[in-house]
Design a protein around this nucleic acid. Structure first.
Length: 584
RNA sequence: GGGAUCGUAGUUCAGUUGGUUAGAACGCCGGCCUGUCAAGCCGGAGGUCGAGGGUUCGAGUCCCUUCGGUCCCGCCA
C-alpha cells in the first residue's frame, strides 16, 4: 500500500508540483481511451486523479478495468487543471493528480445499488447494505454532524461542572411507562433484567449521593411501536441537577442548546427561549409541541356556530377553526384528503367555507345568515380567496385534529422555513390524566414528577386538575427534550404512587429503594433528557431518525443488515431454562 | 391492535379491459474513444413479476392468505 500523504479533500493550488499519495474509493470512472479520469473519494472529499497511457508506469489495461467502489492507493503529482477543466463544484476542483503508480487494494463485486445516488435504491435495500449507504455524502455528513453534536454537548456540560457518570444497562424492570426489553438471567433462574427506558431512577439517586450536576449521553430502550422519529433503541442526553428550580434548568439547558447549534451548524438561537403553557399550546396550536415558525392559529368559533343553522356543532364541546390564506384554491379532492387526515385523529368530519367577493360560499356557508357571516368574517379575519376549516367535537379531538391539519397545511403551503429554528418551552403540564382503556389515573410524565403543590390533602381532592412541575423543550414542532422537578419528599412520593393505583406493597417492591433513599437527605432536584437523535435530525435537516443513526432498525424493529432479532440455539435456551411456545 | 400505501431485471420504474415473446433507464460485461466531471457512441448478458393458494381456456394484472418496506392512529412516563 502506498500510504497516503494527504486525504482526498485537502489538495489545492498550494500543492501544485508536489508528489503525493492518496488512498480511497473510486467514486466515478470516466474512460476516454488513452486517458482515464477517476474521482477518488474518502470521508474528507474527492480528488480527480488522471491516468494517461503515456505517463502511467503500470499496466494501463488494468486501470481500464477499474469500477466504482474499488479501493486504490495511488502515487502521483499534483498539477493545475487547464482553465476549461476547472470544476467549481469540487473543493479540489482546481487541481488533479497525474498518477504514475497505482495499487488496487480491494476490488468490489458488482454493487447492489449506486453509491453516488442515494435515491437509486429503496430504503430496505439500503438498510441491508447499510455499510454502503454510509459511504454516501449525505450520511457521512450526518454522522460527522452527530459527532460534532456529542463533542459540543460534552464540552458545554463539562465546562459547566456537570459530571459524566455511567449507569447500568442491565437493571430492574419497573411497572408503568413503556414496555421493557427483558434480558433473561442465567445465574438467577427465571429472573430477568430490563434494559433501561431511561436512567431516571439512577440519576435521581446520584443527586442523593451528592453529585449535584450529572449528565450522560446514553442509550435507552423502549419496546413499543415505532415511527419516523422513534427507534427501539435511541440516545438521550440525560441531565440532572440538585438545589434547583425550573429557572435553573431553563437557563442551563438554553445555554447548552444555543452552544450546540452555534458550534455544530453556526446558528444563533434566541435568548431567552420563549415559553408557552400546555393549555395555551393545545388551545392555540392544537399540539403540545407546536411549530411556531408559522401562525395559522386555532380560533374558537363556537359562539358563531351555536347561533347558526348548522346543527351538527350545537352539541359539540368545542368548535374551532383555522383560516388558510389563499386556501380558496383547494379542490374537492384536496379537501377530501384533509378530511381523511382529520378523521384519523377521530374527528367526525371537516367542514369548510370559502370567501369570495366578501361572501362566505360553499361548504356549510348556507347555514350562516348574512349578519352572522359578517360577525364570523370580522372575528376570524378571513379575506377573499381564503378558506376556513371548522371542526366541532370533544375539546381534545377538535384541538388535536385541527392541530394536525395545521401542520399538513403548513407543509402544503411551505409555510415553514427550513433554516429557521424556533425553540419553545412548553410548561405547566397536567400532573395526571385518565387512561381511556382502564379509566384509571395515570401520569403524563413519570411518577417521580413533582406536583405544583406540596400539600398532600390537595393532592387527594382533585388530582385531575393538578399541574406538574414538568416541561418540554420543543423545536420546530418536535419535542427535543422533556423533564421535571422531581419529588424529594418520601411522603409525597408515596402519595403519588397510591394515586396512580400502586399499592403500598407494589410501590415498595418496585421503587422501595428510591423511596428509602429519599429518606436519607435528598436534595431538591430536577432534570431533563434530550432526544439526541431528534436533535441531530434537526441539526442535519433530516426528515427521519434513521438517517442520523449509523445502524438503525426498521419500523418493525428489525435490523435488515445483521438480521436481528433472530432465534437462538436450544443450548442457549436450555441454559436459561426458557422454552419457546409456538403461537397457535 | 388498527388504517393507508408499496413490492416486476443488480437497481429505479413502466406494463392498457385478464390475452402471443414482460419493456425503458442506470448499473454490469465486451468494443470504440486523449480533457472528462451524471463523459459519449455501439453491442451483449440479465426476470421464480415478494412467497403460497385460488378463480379462469389463459393471471404481473382479479380474489384469499402470508412475508417485508414506508407513513399514520392507538401505544411511546
Amino acid at each position: 500500500m502506498l500510504k497516503r500523504t494527504h486525504t482526498c479533500g485537502e489538495l489545492g493550488k498550494d500543492h501544485i508540483g508536489e508528489s503525493v499519495n492518496l488512498n480511497g474509493w473510486v467514486n466515478t470512472v470516466r474512460l476516454h481511451g488513452q486517458v482515464i479520469f477517476i474521482d477518488l473519494r474518502d470521508r474528507y472529499g474527492k480528488t480527480q486523479i488522471v491516468f494517461n497511457s503515456e505517463d502511467y508506469d503500470g499496466d494501463f489495461e488494468s486501470v481500464k478495468k477499474l469500477s466504482m467502489e474499488d479501493v486504490l492507493s495511488v502515487k502521483g503529482t499534483v498539477q493545475a487543471r487547464g482553465e476549461n477543466a476547472v470544476n467549481p463544484d469540487m473543493s479540489t476542483g482546481e487541481i488533479e493528480v497525474m498518477v504514475d503508480t497505482m495499487e488496487l487494494l480491494s476490488e468490489t463485486t458488482p454493487l447492489p445499488f449506486v453509491i453516488t445516488d442515494r435515491e437509486s435504491a429503496s430504503e430496505d435495500l439500503r438498510l441491508k447494505y447499510r455499510y454502503l449507504e454510509l459511504r454516501t455524502d449525505e450520511l457521512q455528513y450526518n454522522i460527522i454532524t452527530r459527532h460534532k453534536a456529542y463533542q459540543a454537548v460534552r464540552g458545554f456540560l463539562s465546562e459547566n461542572n456537570f459530571l459524566e457518570v455511567e449507569t447500568p444497562i442491565l437493571m430492574k424492570s419497573t411497572p408503568e411507562g413503556a414496555r421493557d426489553f427483558l434480558v433473561p438471567s442465567r445465574l438467577h433462574n427465571g429472573k430477568f433484567y430490563a434494559l433501561p427506558q431511561s436512567p431516571q431512577i439512577y440519576k435521581q439517586i446520584l443527586m442523593i449521593s451528592g453529585f449535584d450536576r450529572y449528565f450522560q449521553i446514553v442509550k435507552c430502550f423502549r419496546d413499543e411501536d415505532f415511527r419516523a422519529d422513534r427507534q427501539p433503541e435511541f440516545t438521550q442526553i440525560d441531565i440532572e441537577m440538585s438545589f434547583v428550580d425550573e429557572e435553573d434548568i431553563y437557563s442551563n439547558m438554553e445555554g447548552m442548546t444555543r452552544h450546540v447549534f452555534k458550534e455544530v451548524i453556526g446558528t444563533e438561537l434566541p435568548d431567552p427561549f420563549p415559553r408557552i403553557t400546555y393549555d395555551e399550546a393545545m388551545s392555540k396550536y392544537g399540539s403540545d409541541k407546536p411549530d411556531t415558525r408559522y401562525e395559522l392559529f386555532l380560533q374558537d368559533v363556537k359562539q358563531f356556530t351555536d347561533v347558526s343553522d348548522f346543527n351538527a356543532f350545537k352539541s359539540a364541546e368545542c368548535v374551532k377553526a383555522i383560516v388558510v390564506l389563499g386556501g380558496a384554491k383547494y379542490s374537492r379532492k384536496n379537501i377530501d384528503e384533509m378530511t381523511d387526515l382529520v378523521k384519523s385523529f377521530k374527528a367526525k368530519g371537516l367542514t369548510w367555507m370559502k370567501m369570495e367577493e366578501g361572501q362566505l360560499t360553499g361548504g356549510i356557508s348556507k347555514f350562516f345568515g348574512d349578519d352572522l357571516q359578517k360577525e364570523l368574517i370580522s372575528s376570524t379575519g378571513i379575506c377573499d380567496g381564503d378558506i376556513i376549516f371548522l371542526i366541532g367535537d370533544e375539546r381534545s379531538v377538535t384541538e388535536k385534529s385541527l392541530g394536525a391539519l395545521r401542520v399538513e397545511i403548513a407543509n402544503r403551503e411551505n409555510l415553514a422555513d427550513k433554516n429557521d429554528f424556533k425553540p419553545l418551552w412548553v410548561t405547566e403540564f397536567p400532573m395526571f390524566e385518565i387512561d381511556e382503556e382502564t379509566d384509571k389515573l395515570t401520569f403524563l410524565h413519570h411518577p417521580f414528577t413533582s406536583p405544583t403543590t406540596q400539600n398532600v390533602n390537595e393532592l387527594d381532592s382533585d388530582p385531575e386538575s393538578l399541574k406538574a412541575r414538568a416541561y418540554d423543550l420543543t423545536l420546530n414542532g418536535y419535542e427535543i427534550a422533556g423533564g421535571s422537578i422531581r419529588i424529594h419528599n418520601p411522603e409525597i412520593q408515596n402519595k403519588v404512587f397510591s394515586l396512580l393505583g400502586l399499592s403500598q406493597e407494589e410501590a415498595q417492591e418496585k421503587f422501595g429503594f428510591l423511596v428509602e433513599a429519599l429518606t436519607y437527605g435528598a436534595p431538591p432536584h430536577g432534570g431533563i433528557a434530550f432526544g439526541f437523535d431528534r436533535l441531530v435530525m434537526l441539526l442535519t435537516g433530516s426528515s427521519n431518525i434513521r438517517d442520523v443513526i449509523a445502524f438503525p432498525k426498521t419500523t418493525s424493529a428489525l435490523s435488515l443488515m445483521d438480521g436481528s432479532p433472530d432465534s437462538v440455539s436450544d443450548n442457549q435456551l436450555d441454559e436459561l431454562n426458557i422454552q419457546i411456545i409456538k403461537k397457535k
